Amino acid sequence: MIAEPAQGLRVGFAGTPEFAREALAAMLGAGLSVPLVLTQPDRPAGRGMKLQPSPVKQLALEHGIAVAQPTSLKLDGRFPDEAAAAREALQAAQLDVLVVAAYGLILPRWVLALPRLGCLNIHGSILPRWRGAAPIHRAIEAGDAETGITLMQMDEGLDTGDMLAVEREPIGPDDTTALLHDRLARLGGRMIVAALADAAAGRLQPVPQPLEGVTYAHKIDKKEAAIDWTLPAAVIARRVRAFDPFPGASFVRGAETIKVWQARLADGQGAPGEVLVAEAGVLRVACGEGALEIERVQRPGGRRQPVREWLAGCDIRPGERLG
Results as ranks from 00 to 15, higher is better:
Gly148Asp: 15
Leu151Cys: 08
Leu151Val: 10
Leu151Gly: 09
Glu156Gln: 14
Glu156His: 09
Gly157Lys: 11
Gly157Ser: 13
Leu158Thr: 13
Asp159Cys: 14
Asp162Met: 10
Asp162Glu: 15
Leu164Tyr: 03
Leu164Ile: 15
Ala165Glu: 14
Arg168Asn: 15
Glu169Met: 15
Pro170Phe: 10
Pro170Thr: 12
Pro170Gly: 09
Pro170Leu: 11
Ile171Lys: 08
Asp174Pro: 07
Asp174Glu: 14
Asp175Phe: 05
Thr176Trp: 13
Thr177Asn: 12
Ala178Phe: 10
Leu179Tyr: 13
Leu179Thr: 03
Asp182Met: 02
Asp182Asn: 06
Asp182Lys: 02
Asp182Gln: 08
Asp182Trp: 06
Leu184Ser: 03
Leu184His: 00
Leu187Asn: 01
Gly188Asn: 05
Gly189Ile: 09
Gly189Leu: 09
Arg190Lys: 15
Val193Asn: 00
Ala194Ile: 00
Ala194Pro: 04
Ala195Arg: 04
Ala195Met: 03
Leu196His: 04
Ala197His: 03
Ala197Thr: 04
Ala199His: 02
Ala199Val: 00
Ala200Ile: 02
Ala201Asp: 14
Ala201Val: 07
Gly202Thr: 06
Gly202Pro: 08
Gly202Glu: 00
Arg203Ile: 07
Leu204Lys: 06
Gln205Tyr: 01
Gln205Thr: 15
Pro206Asn: 04
Val207Trp: 08
Val207Gly: 07
Pro210Thr: 02
Pro210Met: 03
Pro210Ile: 00
Leu211Pro: 02
Gly213Met: 02
Val214Thr: 10
Thr215Gln: 04
Ala217Cys: 10
Ile220Gly: 02
Ile220Glu: 03
Ala225Tyr: 14
Ala226Ser: 12
Ile227Tyr: 01
Asp228Trp: 01
Asp228Val: 07
Trp229Val: 09
Pro232Ile: 02
Ala233Ser: 07
Ala233Lys: 02
Ala237Tyr: 01
Ala237Arg: 07
Ala237Trp: 01
Arg239Ala: 00
Arg239Asn: 04
Val240His: 06
Val240Ala: 01
Arg241Lys: 13
Arg241Ile: 13
Phe243Asn: 09
Phe243Ala: 05
Pro245His: 07
Pro245Ile: 09
Phe246Ala: 14
Gly248Trp: 12
Val252Leu: 12
Gly254Ile: 12
Glu256Cys: 08
Ile258Val: 15
Lys259Phe: 10
Trp261Phe: 10
Trp261His: 11
Trp261Tyr: 15
Gln262Gly: 07
Ala263Val: 06
Arg264Leu: 06
Leu265Met: 05
Leu265Asp: 05
Ala266Leu: 04
Asp267Ile: 04
Asp267Leu: 07
Gly268Leu: 00
Gln269Tyr: 09
Gln269Asn: 09
Gly270Asp: 06
Ala271Phe: 12
Pro272Val: 10
Glu274Ala: 08
Leu276Ala: 04
